[in-house]
């Protein structure tokens, strides 16, 4: 699970949850690997994201590395900022751990890089 994905996830799938965002990350295994930097992609993506949630997620993984708490008005020209954003969006991968619903404390497992956002875990066991 890359942090771009984490930024889109919410526990809204649980009954009674209002927003369910952002989900707290309890990482057990994190991997980083290089992904080709695409400046245009990062520029287009940043306005679609919940930036403070991304920072929070990066911080919990110890990957904040000087990312500003707000996106500045001239971010499109800030190559250094864009590269940092690219790194935490696409190069950091939570392989195993848990995601926690901010409203109910419900935990969603992340296994082998795939977050399981099913409300009813026992009913959807994958291996049959």
């Amino acid at each position: 699970m890359k942090l771009v994905t984490h930024n889109m996830l919410s526990s809204k799938c649980l009954k009674g949850v209002v927003k369910g965002f952002p989900l707290k990350i309890h990482a057990v295994e994190v991997k980083t690997h290089e992904v080709e930097f695409n400046k245009e992609q990062v520029i287009r993506l940043i306005p679609k994201l919940e930036w403070p949630a991304l920072c929070e997620a990066a911080e919990s993984l110890g990957e904040l590395s000087g990312l500003p708490p707000d996106v500045g008005p001239d971010f499109e020209g800030d190559e250094d900022f864009l590269k940092k954003a690219h790194h935490i969006l696409f190069e950091v991968d939570v392989v195993n751990g848990e995601l926690e619903c901010p409203e109910t404390g419900h935990k969603f497992p992340v296994r082998n890089g795939i977050p399981n956002m099913l409300a009813d875990q026992k009913d959807h066991s994958a291996d049959s």
Binding site: T5, N116, L118, A119, H124
Partner: peptide, 22 residues
Amino acid sequence: QEKGEVFQSDCLAIGARSDSFD
């Protein structure tokens, strides 16, 4: 997963935030 980012979720209760995709 070999092709891109994925998560496991049910289409009737999607574990994604509202008003977020293009």
